[in-house]
Design a protein around this nucleic acid. Sequence first.
RNA 1: CGGGAAGUAGCUCAGCCUGGUAGAGCACUACGUUCGGGACGUAGGGGCCGGAGGUUCGAAUCCUCUCUUCCCGACCA
Length: 441
Amino acid sequence: MRRTRLFLPTLKETPAEAQVVSHRLMLRAGLVRQSAAGIYTWLPTGLRVLRKIAQIVREEQDRAGAQEVLMPTIQPAELWRGSGRFEDYGKEMLRITDRHDRELLYGPTAEEVITDIVANEITSYRDLPKNLYNIQWKFRDEVRPRFGVMRGREFLMKDNYSFDLDKAGAVHSYNKMFLAYLRTYARMGLQAIPMAADTGPIGGDLSHEFIILAETGESSVFCDKALLALDAPGDDIDYDVNLQDLVDQWTHYYAATDERHDQANCDVANDQLVTARGIEVGHIFYFGTKYSEPLGATVQGSGGQKITLEMGSYGIGVSRLVGAIIEASHDDNGIIWPESVAPWTVGLINLKVSDADCTATCERIYAELKAAGVATIYDDRDERAGGKFADMDLVGIPWQLTVGPRGLKDRKIEVKKRAGGEKSEVTIDALGDWIAARAAL
RNA sequence: CGGGAAGUAGCUCAGCCUGGUAGAGCACUACGUUCGGGACGUAGGGGCCGGAGGUUCGAAUCCUCUCUUCCCGACCA
C-alpha cells in the first residue's frame, strides 16, 4: 500500500487519555481511535493486525479439530434465564429492550447460545464429540475500562465450547485446547504460561489462565523458571492420542497469579522462582454439566439411556492480544511487531521522491514485493527523511528498506531490521533473493 | 461502586485565581530556503472555551446542575 493513499493517522504526541504504553502506541501508530470509554474503532493498520491474530487463532483451532461458527452479538434474555445467569451476571451485562419490549442482551460470552444449538441439533452419542468456536465481538460493561484495548468494554474474543459424552472425553478436549493455546501464542512470538485459575462466573472445577509476562501486566504472577524454558508443541503434534503426559509437562511446575499464590505452598527455591507482572490472554474451563443440565443438552447413548453432555469452554482475547503483544514488544521509538502479526512485513522508504532514479528504483522494488506477495507499505510521501524513519519505527514494520540517492550511487539500498535495529546494505541486484526469502514466510 | 482529577483549534497545553473582542507549539494550506533519523522563514485557514441554567452592563473566567474522559481502589476475557 502506498503511504500517500493509506489512511494511517500517526501522532507525534500522545493523547492525554492514554496512560499505558500499548494504548499510547496504538493511538500514536494510528491503529485505533476511541469512540467511547472502552470502545474503539479499528483503523486499517490496526485491523490488519487484529485479523492476523484472529487468523492464527483460527488455524490452530482448526488444527485441533474445532469448527468455526458465528453466533450473534445480541442474544435473547430467556436463554440466559434458562441457565440462571440473567440474574447472576450483574451489571456487567448490557441489557437491551427492543420495540416489542422483548429483553435482549449484548453477549458477554456464549455458553447459552451454543448449548441451545447443540441441545436442539445433536441427539445421538454418535454425533459427539464436537468442539465449536467463534470469533465474535463481545461486550462487558466494565465499571472502569482502561489500558486501551486490553481492558475494553467491547472486545473481540475467540470462544469455543466442547461437548463430550463423559468426563474422560471432556478432559481430552480440554487438553487439546491447552496445547493448541500454547501453539497459538508461540506463533505470535509470545511465551504464554498456563496457570491454575479460579473459575469465576463461568464455573467449573478445572481451569487454566494463560499469562504472558510484561512489565505493565495487570496482576502479579509467580512461577517456576523452568516453565520459561519449555517449548510449545511443534507442527507434528497429534491431537488424537492421549495428551495427558504432554499437558502434565507444563502443569506440574508451580505457577500462580497473585490471587492464588500461597507462599506457604510454594516449594520453588527462591532463585528458581520468577516473580513478575502478567497479562491474561486466554482462559480455559472444564465445567461438566453446569450448562448442559439446565439447558437440556442431552443425547441418547448406545443403550438408549439419556446422557447429559460434559462441557468445557475456552477463550482467547483476540483484541486484547493486540495490546498485549505491544506491551511485550516495543521500545522508545514504537512498536516492534513479530513478523507473524505485523500489519506489513516490509516498509519501503523513498528518501527523495523528487529524484527520478530514486523513485523509479522504489517503484520497481515495490512492484517486485507486491508480485512476491510480501505485504508492503511504500512511503512515497514527499516528506523529510526523519519523519519517514520515525513513522516506520512507530508503526513497527519488521523490515525497512531505505532507498536514497546516496546509496544508489553504489546501487545499494539499506535494510534495517526493526527488532534490534541492525542495518545492512544490499545491492539492488541481490534484492531479489532477499524478497524471495521474505515471500517464503 | 467509593475516592481523586480534567474537559479551551485535529494533538499537547496556556488563559480562569483578580470577568472586558480567543492564545502558543505541533499538525494543516500556499510560497521560499532546506533535505539520509520528526528543519526554518513568511503568509493563511481552523474554536458556541463539553452542555444547560444562573449572577452580571458584560462570563472561557464566578455559582448550580448535568454529560464526558482519565487516574487510584474494589471488580474482570
